[in-house]
Simulated assay, not measured.
Amino acid sequence: MNDTAFKELRIPLRHLTLAAKAWGNPADPPILAVHGWLDNAGSFDRLAPLLDGHYLVAVDLAGHGRSDHRPAGTWYPFADYLDDIGKLIKRFGWPSVDLLGHSLGAALVSTYAAICPQQVRRLLLIEGLGPLTQSADKTLDQLRKSHAARDSFTSDGLRVFANLDEAIAARCHSGNLSGQAARSIVERGVKAVAGNPGGSGIDSTWQVPGTTLTGLDIRSGDGAACLDTRQASAGLSWSSDPQLTVPSSTRLTEDQLADVLAAIVAPTCLILAEPNAPYMPPAMVENRIALLGEIEVVRMTGTHHLHLEEPQPVATALREFLQRHSS
């Protein structure tokens, strides 16, 4: 690829429509890229153009970016994302695919590779191998915390920003990101507020004249996507579903997860930032790595979003891995 040109995709599934960005030639081997929690497909803006010879589709997970939210009264359990990944692969008609994931995305694609090993050619993980876990004696506490959060949930009081720069500054502060890295995510992760900036009315005014996948037919678009500037002066708010912040009701234990990860057969590349993230203690990560039969681990100095902050060394590691496992 080696350029930043991409197309916007709208991918209708049975129950909702997902948005995505696609780089490269659809005739090339596919990579499905999955972002982290409260990020979106913009997370791969700087990495995707560096992965030559592949058709890379970076999806906005349900409730993120420009994808549909799940229906009111439903939530975002981990397993439902796995269903969405499976439906995406079928929608594109890929007999097998390389899966690339960052953080939550890495947890999802590594789990999917265990569930459906015949569909996954190679596994590319950045800052994640399996989901968050919890000891069995915390099960009731987790259920209570999730139940209380669901019971008290309200979507009122969404934060409103005067302009894009203010939203970028907020994301830099909360996510330990540089301005350039935050911009890639924020530009895709806000929407215009209708009416008074102090009010709660939100108008989803994204104009996305991109490609729609209907069966196996693709209607070409120009890839442009922007906020409706008629509404932008009223302020901006996050486009992600506030329900994403409600904690999960259950988590696997490490023993349960071990049963899952041991089923991964795809050659795997795991890229880890140093120093490690607090929720990825080295001993736990090493135990998980030992469960995989064919895995290469690359450690790089950087932050959790190292693929967005310093994409070149990450791309080099992934390209070299893909070349070694090209047969």
Rank of each mutant, 00 (worst) to 15 (best):
A258E: 06
R230F: 01
P197E: 04
G101H: 13
T250V: 12
D228C: 05
R144Q: 13
D60A: 09
L244A: 01
L308P: 10
L124C: 00
R70N: 11
S239H: 10
A136S: 10
G63L: 07
L236E: 15
L16S: 08
R121V: 00
A113L: 09
V285R: 00
P197A: 07
S327N: 12
K87I: 05
L129R: 02
S135L: 12
N196P: 13
P26L: 01
S178K: 12
F92N: 04
T214A: 09
A106G: 14
D3V: 08
N176G: 11
R324G: 03
A262C: 14
N2S: 10
G223N: 06
R121H: 03
A273W: 08
E187G: 11
N163S: 10
Q312S: 15
K138M: 04
V265C: 12
L132Q: 09
S146F: 01
S184P: 15
I202A: 05
P282K: 03
L129P: 00
P29I: 03
G130L: 09
K90F: 09
T253V: 12
A33E: 05
G105L: 13
I202T: 07
L18Q: 05
E320P: 02
G235P: 07
A182S: 03
E294S: 14
S240I: 08
R150K: 13
P281N: 03
C116E: 10
F153S: 04
I264D: 00
E254W: 13
V160C: 06
R299N: 01
A20V: 07
L318M: 10
D80Q: 09
C269E: 03
